[in-house]
Design a protein around this nucleic acid. Structure first.
Lengths: 246, 246
DNA sequence: CTCTATGTTACCAAATTAGGACCAAGGAGA
DNA sequence: TCTCCTTGGTCCTAATTTGGTAACATAGAG
C-alpha cells in the first residue's frame, strides 16, 4: 500500500503534504487498530520503507514522531516496539465517583440530558461514524456532598447501548453490560473560564476558573465508542498524575 | 474556484475589492472549517495561486495577513502551517525546552530568578532535606516562538548541581549531566485565574485562565531532587494524556 | 502624470525526500 | 564461545519542493 499522493483536492479536506506526517498517521492508525500488537515489534524500517514506497529517512522521521509521543520505543539491533500501556498504568485518572469516594465525599448527580439523536458532522468525525448514525447523548451535573463539581457531557455510539435508559447511574457500568466499555482513552485537558450558562447550572460565578477535559474512549478493536466533555470547577478540583521517564 | 469578482454590492455589505483581502478571507474560512487541518500544511503558494487564479504575490500578501494574525506559521522549505494549540503530553516527563524542540517550535526564556539559598521549612519537607541545606532556585518566563507560554519556578536540591550557572538553557539537561535527572514525577494540576503579577510578566490580561502544575521529581533511589511550580497560559496550552480505564 | 494593486519572471535559500554506505548493537545458531 | 544476519544509528550526496526576495511590467484610480 502506498500513501496517497500529494495532488490537491479542490473541494475537500487538505492533506498535509508532508510524506512523513502522512506515514506517521498511517502508523498511528495501525497501532490504534492493533495491527501492530502492543508490546510487539513493528516491521523494520527498511521493510516499512519498501511497503509504503518511501525512503528510510522518511520512515525514520515518521517513527521519530511516534517515539516522541511515547507510542513506540526503539531498541538498537532488536527493533522498534509498540509501548504496552497496560503495564505502565501511569497517569491513571479515576472516574468521578471513584475519585470522590476516595476523598471521603459522597458523589451525586442530576441529569441534564438523556436523549437519542443523530450525529452532528463533528461527532461523525470524532466517533468515526457515518453521517446519519444514531448516538446517545448524556449530560449530568456532578456533585460531591451536594456541592456542584462538574458538568459531564457524553456522546455514545448507538451500537454500544440498547437505549438511553440503560444508563441509570454509571455510564461505564452500562457500557460494560453490552461489552462496549472502553479499554483505553485519550484525554485532552485545558484551562478555561466558566461561561454564564455553565455557571448557572453549577450555581457559581461566571468567569471562575475551570478545567475542560475532552475524552475519547477506545474499544479493544480501536473503535471510538465514547466522547465526553467534562467541565470541572477549578476551585474545587485537583488532578494528580504520576509520570515516568519517556 | 475563483474568488468572487469585484462588482459592487448595492444594498449590502461593502466588499473590500482588494483581491488579497478576499483571498485571506477565503483562507481564514478554510482554517475555521478545518478544511486545513490544525497543525497541518496548507497548499503551497504556487498551488493556491493557480487554484484561486491570482499571482503568487497576491497569495503571499493574503498569507502574510494570516501569519500576522497568528493563524499561520511559515517554515522555509517546508510549507505554511495552520497554528495549532500546543498539546503537551501530560504523561510524559520532559522539560519545557525539550518539549518545544520536539514540536519544532523555538523555545526561549527570560530569567526571573537564579539563586542559591537555604531551604525554607516547607521545602525541607517536600524535598526531604534537613533544615539548613542549600538549594538552587530558578524562575523563568517560558516562551515558544517568542510568545509567552508559562512561568516556571523550580527548587533543586544542592547536591544535584555544581552551581546555579550550570543551568544555561534546559534544567533537565543540566541535571542529566550530573546524573540527577528525575526518572519519575508526581504532578498536581489545577485550574486558576492568572493574577496581576503573573499576567504582567506574561504580558496578558489578569483574570485569564491558567493551569497551575506542581511537580515533584524523583531520582531512581527515591530522593526528591526537584520541585517545580509551573503556571501555564490556559489559552495557549493543551495537555493530553493517554490512559487505561480500570 | 503619480500611486497603488496586481501580474510575471527569475533566482536564492531552506527543508524534505530519495538512495546509498557504513557502523554498532542484539539475536540466532553452529 | 564464535560467526552471521538482522536491525537501528549515523553520515553523505543529490534531486525536488517550498518559501523568500527582487526586478520589472501592466492596469486602473485619482
Amino acid at each position: 500500500m502506498a500513501i496517497a499522493g500529494n495532488e490537491s483536492t479542490p473541494g475537500g479536506i487538505e492533506s498535509t503534504g508532508l510524506r512523513y506526517q502522512q506515514l506517521s498517521g498511517a502508523l498511528r492508525a495501525s497501532i490504534a487498530n492493533r495491527d501492530f500488537a502492543p508490546g510487539g515489534a513493528i516491521p523494520p524500517e527498511r521493510t516499512l520503507a519498501k511497503r509504503y514506497d518511501v525512503s528510510r529517512v522518511t520512515v525514520r522521521r515518521a517513527v521519530d514522531e511516534l517515539v516522541n509521543e511515547g507510542l513506540l520505543v526503539r531498541r538498537h539491533g532488536a527493533g522498534t516496539f509498540v509501548v504496552d500501556r497496560v503495564e505502565k498504568q501511569f497517569a491513571k485518572l479515576s472516574s468521578f465517583s471513584e475519585d470522590m469516594i476516595s476523598r471521603g465525599r459522597v458523589p451525586s448527580s442530576r441529569w441534564l440530558d438523556k436523549t437519542e439523536s443523530f450525529v452532528t458532522p463533528d461527532e461523525s468525525l470524532s466517533l468515526g461514524l457515518s453521517p446519519g448514525s444514531r448516538v446517545f447523548r448524556f449530560a449530568r451535573l456532578r456533585c460531591a456532598d451536594g456541592i456542584s463539581m462538574a458538568i459531564e457531557r457524553s456522546t455514545i455510539a448507538s451500537y454500544a447501548l440498547t437505549d438511553a435508559d440503560a444508563v441509570v447511574d454509571s455510564l461505564y457500568a452500562a457500557l460494560d453490560k453490552t461489552g462496549h466499555r472502553p479499554v483505553r482513552a485519550l484525554q485532552k485537558l485545558r484551562a478555561i473560564l466558566i461561561d454564564a450558562e455553565a455557571a448557572a447550572i453549577m450555581d457559581i460565578e461566571p468567569g471562575a476558573p475551570g478545567l475542560m477535559i475532552e475524552r475519547r474512549g477506545f474499544l479493544a478493536d480501536g473503535r471510538i465508542v465514547e466522547t465526553t466533555e467534562s467541565l470541572y470547577r477549578g476551585d474545587a478540583y485537583d488532578f494528580i498524575a504520576e509520570l515516568v521517564e519517556a
